[in-house]
Nucleic acid binder design. Structure first.
Length: 726
RNA sequence: GGCGGGGUAGCUCAGAUGGUAGAGCGACGGCUUCAUAAGCCGCAGGUCACGGGUUCAAGUCCCGUCUCCGCUACCA
């Protein structure tokens, strides 16, 4: 078989936070395994990654911490890089998209823009938008409020009145205010550039039609987009942190982060090439029709890699290689087991297992093994510490490690560390040998098809067979009664150990190499054929030692408890304690902005990420008089019911003294009607009435806001309904 | 509500092109001692969410229902 040329990438993690096990399981470990496997086959592989370092979330975080975006980027770049190193995920280069990590990136990004422009694949639109002089940014619809142009309702949102349901252009809004600083924005016209995906749809469809070998989840997703029809997508933003748009008329604008991020795959390859002494070497991959480009990503990244990125590459008309494969994985959820049931969970930051906290306790190979064995390849899967313990103890240690150990020790103790001969092989011996020869072929096929789970299962099965065979032959008996038979058994058994070491090496490189050395080899595992290469009689093995340590309950218990309590804490706030929150495997840290935003909405700064939390003390101070204009009372909730066709809304009948009020409240995710019924809660009475989902709401229940979760405020002792709140 | 994905043994999950339901773990009962008390064998366990339909035959195709999850809308 001729050797392949492969350019492999993993989604660029976004440099504003650490990475968790879900990221590893989804986009990095499968890629690392694939790369290691292909190298064993002798294929020419370059493995590229780096942090995604532009975009609004980073600037917001920087502003919040009062540091520069560079500081944020640098911090998480280092954190993430270190996490990968500790995991033994080895890139040929781990770069980044900002100038401090990659000097080719900006110029290549500009080039991408220019070629697209030249090829008429970019359009320009001039639009008027609200601009806040104080915040120095354009405001997305959700960051403006004002009075409704039709009914005058004072708190209309940017483009829609919640009172009269009138939808309007944000520019029609009267008395607009910046939601972040409350100042009045001015209207400025701003120009933005759009990628003409619409005109490229046919070409894309044609290209993807040939991808019959792609994973089903990817194909389905892409077809969904085609069915809707591709739309133009803004590729520029008014922002200071990013790659400047290479046009004079675009001063103060940068390329949208999702546009420049995937270009990082190429610019990082350039950087790698340069480091290796030949800057042009990147072309041997990216512009070589023989090269296969493989992007490992999480499922939230499918549209970018399967549609937008290929469109950008096609649109260059520079013979770039389009993705050959996009093995997108699903999500790894985190959970815990209680009463033999698994409770799924987590979404908020505390409810995931961070890579660093895991590696502080366990060796990388155990983590790698476990994540490979239950990788979310076709479906979301669940991580629990108990499963982790079980997988490591029963498979890695019990089935594999123990088998290798018993074989090696037996040879060491009874054959003076010399592999015995194969003079007399029984039918059964031959049968097992045949199986040993077949397994690497099958595992090779599975690895090549991105089917790591089954590859691992197949390897474990071979080890199981080894244990069965070993027990069946009972060499500890035959060593005394029938030495020939014992010799045959050892000869066959050690071939299994040999195959296991090689086949496992992509998954658990350190342990596999250790085992290899225990087999008596001085070199490295470096060829897939070594899996089926027979150890000759007379070969001297090394010193057997245990490969893995058993994970005891008292190590797992506190970890599980920690995760469980975090999850339960979140669930407590939910009605019926059934809140099952999930964490995405590749959530915020994927190569590109993740939320598809309508093309029109993208042009403003704040459309992707909520604003930083208002720091205490920053709100404008108000007079006592103004405060006293609020009619704050205690009301008793008499009736409560869910608003149909809505997830978050409860319709409440509240008694304030002798008066009844109907209030709609967005707390249904956290309180059932039963839970709130009979409660006495603070309520603002003189808020302008509003219609929500067609239901009148005449007041507002006050809640504490805990990371977006409402928490009811209840009087410390019983108070009559209607009592003033001052 | 819209879009997307699920509901298969106690638990976690497999089940191309329709043909008598699978694995691992757990439970239960045995065997073994070479090996990190690891290993091996046996047994139990499912009306494949529910209701219709197509078919000689459906977990697998079609329609409907319920339910769970994700994104999205609703949070006065």
């Amino acid at each position: 078989m001729s050797k392949l040329k492969l350019l492999v990438t993993s989604a660029l993690p976004y440099a504003n936070g650490p990475i968790h096990l879900g990221h590893i399981a989804g986009a990095y470990l499968p890629a690392d395994i694939y790369v290691r496997f292909n190298r064993l086959l002798g294929n020419d592989v370059v493995y590229i990654c780096g942090t995604d370092e532009h975009g609004v979330p980073i600037t917001l975080r920087a502003e919040k911490e009062n540091v520069t975006p560079r500081t944020i980027v640098q911090r998480y770049h280092e954190d993430i890089k270190k996490a990968f190193q500790r995991c033994n995920i080895v890139f040929d280069t781990f770069s980044g998209t900002s100038h401090m990590h990659n000097k080719h990136h900006a110029s290549l990004s500009r080039e991408f823009f220019m070629y697209l422009n030249k090829n008429n694949l970019i359009s320009v639109k001039l639009t008027d938008q609200h601009f806040c002089p104080k915040c120095q940014r354009f405001l997305a619809d959700r960051f403006i409020e004002g009075s409704c142009p039709r009914c005058g309702f004072a708190e209309a949102r940017g483009d829609e009145c919640s009172n009269c349901n009138y939808q309007f252009d944000p520019l029609e809004l009267k008395n607009p205010k910046c939601k972040i600083c409350q100042d009045a924005p001015e209207i400025r016209s701003t120009k933005h550039w759009y990628l003409r995906l619409d005109v490229m749809q046919k070409e894309l469809e044609k290209w993807i039609a040939g991808k019959t070998y792609w994973k089903e989840n990817v194909v389905t997703f892409v077809h969904g987009w085609f069915k809707q029809g591709l739309k133009e997508r803004a590729i520029t933003r008014d922002l200071y942190w990013g790659v400047p748009v290479p046009l004079e008329e675009a001063a103060g604008k940068v390329l949208y982060v999702w546009f420049d991020a995937p270009i990082g795959y190429i610019s990082a390859t350039m950087e790698w090439a340069e480091k290796n002494g030949n800057i042009d070497k990147w072309k041997e991959y990216w512009q070589n029709p023989e090269c296969r480009v493989v992007h490992f990503i999480g499922k939230d990244n499918i549209p970018f890699h399967a549609i937008i990125w290929p469109a950008m590459l096609m649109g260059q008309r520079q013979n770039y290689q389009l993705p050959w494969h996009i093995p997108a994985n699903e999500y790894l959820n985190f959970g815990f087991s209680a009463d033999d049931k698994s409770v799924k969970a987590s979404k908020s930051v505390g409810n995931v297992v961070w890579v660093h906290e895991c590696l502080d306790i366990f060796p990388a190979d155990m983590v790698r093994y476990c994540l490979a064995a239950c990788a979310p390849e076709k479906q979301d899967t669940m991580f629990t510490w108990k499963d982790f313990q079980l997988k490591c103890n029963s498979e890695l240690l019990g089935v594999i490690g123990n088998f290798a150990n018993r074989v090696l020790k037996f040879i060491a103790n009874n054959f003076n560390s010399q592999v015995p001969g194969s003079a007399l092989l029984s039918e059964r011996d031959k049968e097992v040998l045949a199986k040993i020869r077949l397994t690497p072929k099958e595992v090779e096929r599975l690895y090549a098809n991105f089917d790591v789970r089954n590859a691992v299962a197949e390897i474990v099965n071979l080890s199981r067979l080894g244990n069965q065979y070993f027990d069946e032959k009972a060499p500890w008996k035959s060593v005394k009664e029938n030495k020939r038979d014992c010799e045959a058994c050892m000869f066959v058994s050690i071939q299994i150990v040999n195959a296991l070491a090689v086949m496992l090496s992509p998954v658990i490189p350190e342990s596999a190499q250790k085992l290899w050395e225990q087999l008596g080899y001085k070199d490295k595992i470096c060829k897939w054929e070594q899996a089926s290469q027979e150890i000759a009689p007379g070969h001297t093995i090394g010193t057997p030692t245990g490969l893995f340590q058993k994970i005891e309950d008292d190590v797992i218990a506190p970890l599980e408890e920690k995760l469980a309590s975090a999850i339960q804490k979140a669930a407590q706030a939910a009605p019926e304690a059934k809140l099952a929150i999930e964490t995405k495997a590749v959530e915020t840290t994927t190569a590109t902005a993740t939320t598809p935003v309508p093309a029109q909405a993208q042009a403003t700064v704040a459309s992707v990420q909520p604003p930083a939390a208002t720091p205490t003390g920053k709100a404008k101070s108000i007079s006592l008089d103004l405060f006293q204009t609020l009619d704050l009372r205690i009301g008793e909730v008499i009736e409560a019911e869910k608003v149909p066709k809505s997830d978050k809304l409860l319709k409440l009948q509240v008694k304030i003294g002798s008066e009844m009020r109907q209030v709609v409240s967005g707390i249904a995710k956290y309180y059932t009607p039963e839970q709130i019924k009979g409660k006495k809660v603070p309520i603002i009475l003189n808020l302008e009435p509003a219609k929500i989902r067609g239901i009148m709401s005449e007041g507002m229940i006050l809640c504490a806001d805990v990371e977006g979760r409402p928490v009811l405020l209840l009087p410390e002792q019983d108070v009559p309904s209607g009592a003033m709140v001052k």
